[in-house]
Design a binder for these strands. Sequence first.
DNA 1: ATTGAGACCTGTCGGC
DNA 2: TGCCGACAGGTCTCAA
Length: 280
Amino acid sequence: MPELPEVEAVRRSLDAVLTNARIADVDIRRPDLRAPFPRRFRSRLTGQTVRSLTRRAKYLLASLSSGETLVMHLGMSGSFRIESRGAAEPGRADDASEPDRHDHVVFHLSSGAIVTFNDPRRFGVMMLLTRDQLARHPVLSRLGPEPLSPDFDGAALARATRGKKTALKAALLDQRIVAGIGNIYACEALHVAALSPFRQASTIATPAGAPRAAAERLAAAIKGVLLRAIDRTSAPRYRSTRFRVYDREGEACPRSGCRGIIRRRSQAGRSTFFCPVCQL
DNA sequence: ATTGAGACCTGTCGGC
DNA sequence: TGCCGACAGGTCTCAA
């Protein structure tokens, strides 16, 4: 599920329960996810109050009263479930649902709310970092600009891809160039911008690194695609939507006037969906 | 320095 | 029905 828009939707739903909440206890049901849990994870979280819940790229950052930051990544299959324990009637079944074998971390908040992290594939990550560790983190500190921020535009994209011989789509997936885009929205944005996923990344800029029209179009397409996805994903009645090209191999290109048929090709080990007619 | 392939782990889906 | 391979929205590491 989780590229930037989905992680942002998760952040919004968690924010109301978590921000200003005190962590009463934490159940850690296994020793690791993609990486082992931090040492003394439980004791370092217990008693802390969550000051804020923000997002950077596909990471969720819960800033704690201790000064440490709980950094969470959903990997490929991570999700959170929010339940409120019916503290009122003891003896009566509360609305905490059946535990699942993939419920790995359970946060018990002093409000009575229970937040459960579920992740079947266990590609998720939880880290607990000091201010210093956060600033120096080898991955987090190298993340590229947030695509929805004002400092991400055609010029920024052109600068970041300058001289890059790699394919344009691979560049979009490189979190150091722009943060938060995954396989689906890379395909979608390239289609909106009518750019081939296979063209060399550097071709959207002049040799000096100045943006060409393609860079401006691509930056705008990225913003548009992500914004629309956030709106849809955060909507009260969320329905997983179909995409323009992703997972539509063999279907007609949705661009008006284009007669192309969407194709799928494997690129750097991932499926790329594109229209061979209008994406140049 | 890049870049592709493989690994991590489980679930689901289509084909036989 | 059951088994098997291919594939999945993310990252990391390693060899070329």
